[in-house]
Simulated scan of single mutants.
Amino acid sequence: MYWTLPFNENPPLEYFHKYVVDRVEVQDTTASSPTRVTEYSYLGDAAWHYDDFELVKPEHRTYGQFRGY
């Protein structure tokens, strides 16, 4: 993805990582309730969409729009 501060003429190409969560544990530390565990599984790979936003210059458009799994 190309990104930059406002009014910068030459934005650099940067790569960002999208980390997935496969397990979340929640525990109430004020009471003696059991830990609540939630597990996630994903079907397939991430869905990335080509950036077709009209205000982005065509040479700076990438597959930078995350659309979920």
Rank of each mutant, 00 (worst) to 15 (best):
Y2M: 08
W3T: 10
T4S: 15
L5P: 07
L5V: 12
P6F: 04
P6E: 05
N8D: 14
N8W: 09
E9A: 13
N10A: 06
P11C: 04
P12D: 11
P12T: 10
L13W: 04
L13R: 08
Y15N: 15
Y15I: 13
F16R: 14
H17C: 12
H17A: 14
K18A: 12
K18E: 12
D22A: 03
D22H: 10
R23H: 00
V24F: 01
E25A: 14
E25V: 08
E25S: 14
V26D: 04
Q27W: 07
T29M: 15
T30W: 09
S33W: 00
P34S: 09
P34M: 08
P34K: 08
T35C: 10
R36Q: 06
R36V: 06
V37F: 06
T38E: 08
T38L: 05
T38Q: 07
T38I: 06
Y40R: 06
S41C: 03
Y42G: 02
L43K: 13
L43M: 08
L43N: 13
G44E: 04
G44F: 01
D45Y: 01
A46D: 11
A46T: 02
A47N: 11
A47D: 10
A47V: 09
W48Q: 15
H49K: 15
H49C: 11
Y50S: 05
D51Y: 01
F53G: 04
F53L: 08
F53W: 08
E54T: 00
E54V: 01
E54Y: 02
L55V: 07
L55W: 09
V56N: 13
K57R: 12
P58M: 04
P58D: 03
E59W: 01
E59F: 00
H60W: 03
H60Q: 01
R61Y: 03
R61E: 05
R61V: 03
T62H: 12
T62Q: 15
Y63H: 13
G64F: 09
G64T: 08
Q65P: 01
Q65S: 11
F66H: 15
F66T: 05
F66D: 13
R67K: 15
R67N: 14
G68W: 05
Y69L: 09
Y69E: 09
